[in-house]
Amino acid sequence: MSTNTITDIHEKGLFKTLRTDNWWLYPGLVVFGLSSFLIYGFWSAWQADYYWYSAGQGGFGGYLAPFYSPLLFIKEGVEGAAPMEHSLFGAWPSWWPAWLPPSPSLLILAVPGIFRFTCYYYRKAYYRVFSGTPPACAVGSLPRKGKEGYKGETGLMIVQNVHRITMYFAVMYIIVFFYDAYLSFFRGGELGIGLGSLLLLGNPILLTCYTFGCHSIRHLVGGRMDCYSCGMMGEVAHNNGKIVGWLNQRHEFFAWFSLIWIMIADFYIHMVSMGNIIDPSTWSF
């Protein structure tokens, strides 16, 4: 029999654990997934061109890369830019700093970005991998120094409470994305379908599943009530709770699925617009 080992049962420190399983696998995958998304997102937003494709045809219809939607302003004369009639507020503003590319994406990514950043699921994911609080269950956290030590979401991270507010705006984005999907089924005013149409239709559907599984929405549509037998509103809240609850239980799945899908859809539109990929569609027959 081997010798016994003296141990400090309360020993603390980053990554301290007696776990013998592959606890590092989940944080590893999250680092890879979130880093990939951030790198791609910055790359896409920084491009400022090739975000629109309508095969050179005017009229109603075309593919708009989701990272660029909605188009608040459009810079004319840029390769692969959308026609000016798709701009909500017209031509590119003169006050835009010259050192920043004239990318419509940079104007609109903040809201969905903050919505995802403050999402209860993503909080779990990135707190584990980027702040080590904790890296995994029963694995030592990154020690916090200072007078108060660990503050959780009472210090700087109190900002997480804006999730509710960004949720109100995120719902509006879904409407915009459904309009983009509708737009993608037309080219030069002619109804049709292409692979890009399917990608742009899948995007708002998955975003709907993700957004309406949000804990904040679940709270507002039924969770804040305590009496479900109280008249019609109670009944509605109870039924809402069942639907949103079903989505909420799959929040992690839809968080990742919608994230990967929007990335693929955006990349695909860029590639088609640049001419690197031929979009299979009914319009090319």
Partner: peptide, 22 residues
């Protein structure tokens, strides 16, 4: 309540499978 950062380990270990966090 602000000190909980939703890492859901409580839910993971619950033998009664209570969705403590969610």
């Amino acid at each position: 309540s602000g000190l909980c950062n939703i890492t859901k380990c409580c839910t993971d270990v619950c033998p009664e499978h209570i969705h403590i966090t969610d």
